[in-house]
Amino acid sequence: MKVAVRGISFEYDGIPALRNVSLEVGEGEVVGVVGPNGSGKSTLLRCIDGILRPRVGVVLVDGEETSKMRRMDLARTMGYVPQESSGTFPIRVFEMVLMGRRPYVNWKATRKDVDAVRRVLELMGMEHMAWRYFQELSGGERQKVIIARALAQEPKVLLLDEPTSNLDLRAQIEVLELIKELVRKNELSAMMAMHDLNLAARYSDKLVMLREGQIFAAGRPASVLTRENVREVYGVDVEAIPQLVPVGVRSGA
């Protein structure tokens, strides 16, 4: 068992956002977090990453309590991909990914750090854009750069907050395929908050459905995304009609 969340609760200025949430993410496993806006998806990821401190409950990685880890050790354990990344000032892709080495460097980026960045860029097929400005890239490319930054942290756990919400169809598939592949290959434990239920179902091994800060349903995607659950949590009637299910990206298209 890699990541274990045990009974965490969090409130923003007295307004509860998470209530007694427990879940587990195994090695090489992608857990999708779904639920309407304000149901606590982002809050949950931020609590796990330690950006927010849960009022009660603990987060364990390999049995170690994250709240007792040093900041730098935590940053070497968990990579986080925020919802939106712009960067205030112009920054090159290489430099952006190099920021993922922040938990390792003192002042000078060593050969090891530069090598780590190169490996990640190669792994993601992005060496050709290393010297372009981050701000000039498309939304999908930017999202990949931020994922690359998280991977440069050499984490065991990858947390992604709506990694596909601003991307077009193709970029959505590319990013999710990439995440899935990276998680398998590197035995990571990944959690991603998602709005698109079909994509969430397709690319997650398990789903957690939140409602008002509580887990409403959890388990295999098919068992979580039932008509009854979606009606109950989203207030939307759905039916399983024939739909376009993307199965992969054609190379050269």
């Binding site: 990453d49 950006i51 935590l74 940053a75 070497r76 990344s85 993922g100 922040r102 938990p103």
Partner: peptide
């Protein structure tokens, strides 16, 4: 890079 990103970088 933003507060959240900085925080998650330690």
């Amino acid at each position: 890079l933003g507060d959240e990103a900085a925080e998650s970088l330690g």
